[in-house]
Write a protein that binds this DNA or RNA. Structure first.
Lengths: 256, 256
DNA sequence: TTGAAGTGTTTCTTTTAGTGGAACGAATGG
DNA sequence: CCATTCGTTCCACTAAAAGAAACACTTCAA
């Protein structure tokens, strides 16, 4: 009856869930359900986290991330090798386009991306998202990455089980996706409408490491109402300039 | 010969060490030494972390924090319930005093503090520190907390084994410390010179939760050369105003 | 060229503590 | 007041964590 035993994995899964999904306190059974694990195991994992001071239990026996957990986050965030390097370029892109600009990091292991830095525009209406891992097949930022990967990796991504329909505009057919990717490569950047968030136009371009490997993508998000066709060219030009400036800076001394 | 078995604890210790002490890559034996644990155990812990994607192993078999680890930090930091609440007051204190202002959170379990938010002054010379847990017996921020704790807790702190001499100015004699604390209580804030960092004057005042318990302290750090005696009063006044404004804001609806 | 001293990793037996279904006692609520 | 939740404890079972030692590999000096 003995199932696979990986206490560390279980506890980290709980921690990760609390970090990603959370803002508040949760009961054992609630967490257990999310983990898809027996209550006892989750309870034990929570106790381990409790002992390490990463979660706290309040008066009504519900669990929350602890101050120490937040401290670790606060200590880690500024050390992130990415933020400091990409922030100037994100700022520049936002200033030049007048819209919300951001930089997505590509993870060659997960074959996913996440937004590492973002600069909101001054407009009252801006786009918010929550900075978790995102797929490559949907949205300008993802497609700007996917389209410039090598053939083998592209095939791997297209074959992944989580080619999900994020919105009604998401392309999930491999053939159509390949066609779209071809168009992206031809232009040098990706333009999508509401593929990831309904009502949002995205323009994204790849950022390469000087050694040639794909690092991430810079992108701009614009509410559909505010976007006009004629804005595409100048925005894309500005974005591409930022991307190559980024690569150049990396070339001038940074051993990533 | 079987020692205590706590795989989760070991792995978290390694992770924490990497987060706190690190900016770079480390070998197994190096980490093992820092952990004060057998190489094998550390190796296993690293493998667990590796499997969870929290660390990565580079070509020369050295270990570093992974992108995913940084992502967790980036995801966690902005969610910190502290930053968003205290940031406005830190900004105000910095603006009013013209110096670097910060807010320290008091942890009633660890009986330590750490800096949750900081606003640098515009001067060329500013104070930097690294945001880990700090003791209460040294520096204005710590003393502003220690002095306003209840008698029993104070005794516990003074009896702790880590009453360390941070600089030559640190007071470590319990009797002298009590005298200093008495003075702090009388004034309502703490002024220290170089107790934590040589050449830095600190002025700190306690922040209370509306329900009366001690939350943290706001403090200002000034390079000694730039500090004049006559500046103490206005800075302290500004600080105390910020602190009570903070408490008032908490009273107006925040269920900390 | 050799070998001493590093490194990270694997092997191995012992034994602890993780596993999870079931039972428990305290809240909660219709 | 019983039914249903909750978090927690109990328990036999056994997988995996422990850690000394051997291993494979690189480095570097003699």
């Amino acid at each position: 009856m003995g199932e696979l035993r990986r206490p560390f994995s279980k506890a980290i899964a709980v921690l990760r869930w609390l970090v990603d999904a959370s803002h508040g306190s949760y009961g054992v059974r609630e967490i257990s359900a999310a983990m898809n694990a027996p209550v006892t195991t989750t309870h034990r994992a929570l106790n381990a986290l409790l002992q390490e001071g990463l979660v706290v239990k309040n008066d009504s026996n519900r669990y929350t991330l602890s101050l120490e957990a937040y401290r670790l986050g606060l200590a880690l965030a500024p050390k992130s090798p990415w933020r400091e390097v990409c922030m100037p370029f994100v700022r520049r892109a936002s200033r030049e386009t007048g819209e919300t600009a951001a930089f997505s990091i590509f993870d060659p292991v997960r074959l996913q991306r996440f937004t590492a830095a973002r600069m909101e525009s001054d407009h009252a209406v801006t786009i918010v998202d929550r900075g978790y891992w995102k797929p490559l097949h949907a949205g300008a930022s993802g497609l700007a990455l996917l389209s410039f990967l090598d053939e083998a990796t592209q095939a791997e991504v297209l074959g992944m089980p989580n080619i999900s329909r994020e919105t009604t505009q998401t392309i999930i057919d491999p053939i159509e996706l390949r066609k779209k990717m071809e168009a992206v490569r031809a232009k040098g950047y990706a333009v999508t409408r509401g593929q990831l968030i309904a009502g949002v136009v995205g323009i994204g371009a790849p950022v390469f490491h000087p050694d040639g490997r794909l690092l991430g993508s810079m992108y701009v998000s614009i509410p559909e109402q505010r976007f006009a066709e004629r804005r595409e060219d100048p925005i894309a030009a500005s974005l591409l300039a930022c991307c190559s400036a980024f690569t150049n800076q990396l070339a001038r001394g940074w051993t990533g």
